[in-house]
Design a protein around this nucleic acid. Structure first.
Lengths: 127, 127
DNA sequence: AAAAATATACGAAACTTTTCGTAATAAAAG
DNA sequence: CTTTTATTACGAAAAGTTTCGTATATTTTT
């Protein structure tokens, strides 16, 4: 599959656990998911099996407890999802999206500084 | 329903038509949708009926061709969807999302200027 | 070695979303 | 007035997503 398939909400939750904690077993993933909400063990297992079939994750079966690794890179997936929202809800206007994202005033000064730096670099690089 | 329900992809496409063209009939909405892809008339009708039930749109039935009006405001919906993506994919870091959105370098100078202005205002307003 | 705990496989139910066919009705054209 | 066209109502199929129960197998504990 050339273009990475858009993960569903439940799949994304699992991906985030793997991105944050590295390759993990079903038990590890399910435990972390259960810190936030109740999810049955076999539910998580089934999701991972489906994700394996979709080639979103890969299962290392050398041990009895299979170890799952993400086949999607975090930043690529974020970019993909962001771009899809950009088109679907903002008609492709990154400006609108950015201003909505910053508008609530919850972004710290140091983060704003990083964004300003990026903008400077973009302005420098633009011909 | 206190919090506006998150519209589905197909619902969002319809909302965008209404936001852009104002209150419209099924025929008008379906024609515009069909500029981009083939969609059956009754499919669009059914969606609008479901959206009416969900209180996403309101149907004015005084004429035979019902006229549908959005009950969701464009900016509120964008904010809602953006926030949901922010949490689900970026762990709440607006900085990461913004940098991904601007990173491709497709944002024009004048738009960057507007963003810079917003950041200045945020910095001024921050205590 | 028996019992208990842990793991995977897998079917299927419950739910949501999307799509469309058919029927009924109303309006317009002939 | 009759035929054609346009519209809504509605059921339901098709597809996708999420959840979990049960069966089976393996490992660990007693």
């Amino acid at each position: 599959m050339q273009i990475p398939p858009k993960p569903t909400d439940a799949e994304l939750e699992i991906l985030r656990v793997i991105w944050q904690h590295g390759s993990s077993t079903v038990r590890q993933i399910n435990d972390i998911l259960n810190e936030k909400k109740t999810v049955g063990y076999t539910t998580t297992l089934k999701l991972l099996q489906i994700m394996t079939q979709k080639e979103i994750v890969r299962a290392d079966k050398s041990d009895r407890s299979h170890v799952y690794t993400s086949l999607l890179k975090e930043e690529e997936t974020q970019l993909h999802l962001m771009d899809q929202l950009l088109q679907a809800a903002f008609g492709g206007s990154a400006k609108k999206l950015v201003m909505q994202a910053l508008g609530n005033g919850k972004t710290s000064q140091s983060e704003l500084d990083e964004i300003k730096l990026l903008i400077k670099q973009l302005e420098r690089g633009a011909e």
